[in-house]
Design a protein around this nucleic acid. Structure first.
Length: 544
RNA sequence: GCUCCGGUGGUGUAGUCCGGCCAAUCAUAUUGCCCUCUCACGGCAAUGACCUGGGUUCGAAUCCCAGCCGGAGCACCA
């Protein structure tokens, strides 16, 4: 408002300051640091998710950051599913598409989508080449035995097998002639390397369990991440790798392979783990999966789950998540992401569009109370209230909230004999039933809630700050509502006009918060939580 | 035990490479005030940080050393 005026004035007084102001505005809105050695048009980055389940919120960081860099450098975004462990991190066939859907929700799209499980022959070819280069050997030592030798800096007796034997045995691995644990292919690195983590690591191992994807179900000889990922990064032209600190030794391991092939290793950045406040649940696919199986959560999109599906269902925009994720920067230390930051971003995004409605909650510690509105001496009480659809956009008009017997949250009731303003309706005076003024009425039970005596609609009492404004609904004409929140389900009553909003819209329940309307007349789930079938509306709470 | 990495307000972040313009930026959070028929939005203000100790230097958040604290890897997981 005054902004433009100020600028005009500044322009006449000191144009050079204005230019400076613009320059400051232009830049670093806590944007990510520039990538090292990045040429516009030549940056290729990849997200390499393991599709062993839908994504939790921490997973949003990779597409958020890669997508942001892609836009900055006009680069390429490869999504490669690293699904090379059919057993301990067994892929979930639904997760492939779910993950692509999550990326789309965040506002990005992968230019290329690959599945490692489609590319076994490629890995085998490179392994054979590596054997020819003297860079790998088959080893039948049990894992513990090798570990002991390795920690002592001693080589495996298999290390100097002749290449012919190695080729034969590796061929047998591919043919599935060994069972799990009987034979591996190791990369020959430096058995005396000062970092024990880098010594002659495993490139291929046998897995008896078939891969869940039909196309890959026949394979038994599977590459380990460091081999597969290293080969693929080179083959797909990846220029910049971002990965977690848990993989900080990966580049060092893979460099041995790159050196054998005389390839140039991409730039690598590491970042720490993300923790979220506000959730009791671990940011871990397996933990969430277990909670769902136990019925503790109603699904991946349960509002209590720290998953992408959950915040999406709550009406939080992918863009809000992306902004929060990119503002985390690229530090290698662990970071705590405050959900309030996501909420603040989202509020910016949705506040203008979210129409306002009333929802009177009915909670154990703050039950809804029902009271009739009685006529004033001179004036009959109006039949309905007409609050604005959105206070900042008068052209959207007013809603009609029927009055008569109304519900309010008990904590919103004023002290006996005091007034309160029903928003969009008018001023009423609370008159508890019976002789409350004898001082005996302490806790008061809900049956004798009393009445609200209509006073008038003179807004001055509110302007003067004498009377609080509260939300309310009609007792008879409201929708039984289930509000699902991070802290658990809350029941309540929504004003009838909310049917105008329709499903899948984000509204603001005044003095409660933003929520996404999920379903009208929902069907019952058989879960302990979630809709029982009694409700007329289910909404998912986003944030205040 | 061996090997890496990191420590700026409640949270995130800028500044650290190339020491001074940093009694430290911005956002969020919290609190108060203003606006308002919402505890939303908007406006104003306040709160609050350079892990510790040495060293180098005229001068250190920034360079060096030690310590402390935290994280990660040493898997036939990713």
């Amino acid at each position: 408002m005054d902004e433009t005026k100020r600028r005009d004035r500044l322009e006449t007084l000191a144009p050079e300051l204005l230019a400076e102001l613009d320059a400051d505005d232009e830049g670093d809105d806590h944007v990510l640091p520039d990538l090292p050695n990045a040429e516009p048009g030549e940056v290729v980055m990849r997200a390499a998710p393991n599709p062993n389940g839908p994504w939790h919120m921490g997973h949003a960081r990779m597409p958020a950051v890669i997508g942001t860099y892609k836009e900055r450098y006009d680069g390429e975004f490869v999504c490669r599913f690293d699904d090379t462990d059919p057993e301990t991190k067994r892929p979930d066939l639904d997760a492939y598409d779910a993950i692509l859907g999550d990326i789309e929700y965040l506002g990005f799209e992968a230019d290329r989508v690959l599945k490692a499980s489609d590319r076994l022959e490629t890995y085998y070819e490179h392994a054979r080449e590596l054997i020819d280069l003297g860079g790998a050997y088959t080893c039948d030592l049990p894992a513990e035995e090798f570990s002991e030798l390795k920690n002592a800096g001693e080589p495996s007796p298999n290390r100097d097998k002749d290449p012919g034997t190695v080729h034969d045995e590796f061929g047998d691995m591919i043919a599935g002639e060994y069972d799990a644990g009987e034979m591996v292919l190791r990369v020959r690195t430096d058995i005396e390397h000062k970092n024990p983590a880098l010594r002659d690591w495993v490139a291929f191992r046998m897995i008896d369990t078939p891969h869940p994807r039909e196309e890959a179900a026949e394979y038994r000889c599977w590459p380990m991440l460091d081999f597969q990922s290293g080969i693929d990064d080179h083959l797909t032209g990846v220029t910049h790798i971002i990965r977690g600190i848990d993989l900080q030794d990966s580049a060092k391991r893979q460099r041995f392979v790159y050196d054998y092939f005389d390839w140039e290793y991409p730039e690598v950045l590491h970042w720490g783990h993300v923790q979220l406040d506000e959730y009791d649940i671990d940011l871990s696919t397996s933990t969430i999966k277990a909670l769902i199986e136990d019925g503790e959560l109603t699904g991946w999109d349960d509002p209590r789950a720290p998953t992408i599906a959950s915040v999406r269902r709550r009406g939080i925009r992918g863009e809000a998540l992306v902004e929060s994720m990119t503002s985390l920067g690229m530090s290698t230390s662990d970071v705590d992401l405050a959900m309030s930051s996501v909420y603040a971003n989202n509020r910016d995004l949705v506040d203008d569009e979210a129409d306002r409605y009333f929802l009177v909650r009915d909670r154990a510690d703050d039950p809804a109370v029902e009271l009739p509105i009685t006529d004033a001496d001179g004036a009959p009480a109006p039949k309905a209230g007409h609050p604005a659809v959105h206070p900042d956009f008068p052209d959207r008009g007013d809603r009609t909230v029927p009055a008569g017997r109304v519900l309010v949250e008990s904590s919103d009731l004023p002290p006996a004999g005091e007034r309160v303003w029903l928003k969009g309706y008018g001023c009423v005076r609370y008159e508890p039933e019976g002789d409350a003024d004898d001082g005996s009425d302490t806790t008061g039970d809900s049956t004798d809630a009393g009445t609200l005596a209509y006073v008038d609609a003179d807004i001055d009492v509110v302007r003067e700050g004498d009377v609080d404004v509260v939300h309310w609904v009609s007792a008879a004409e409201s929708l039984e509502t289930l509000l699902r929140t991070v802290a658990g389900d809350v029941r309540g009553h929504a004003e009838p006009a909310i049917v105008d909003a329709g499903t899948d819209t984000v509204v603001q329940f005044e003095r409660v918060g933003f929520a996404r309307l999920d379903a009208f007349d929902p069907t019952s789930t058989d879960e302990p939580d979630g809709p029982t079938g009694e409700e007329e509306l289910v909404a998912y709470y986003a944030h205040p």
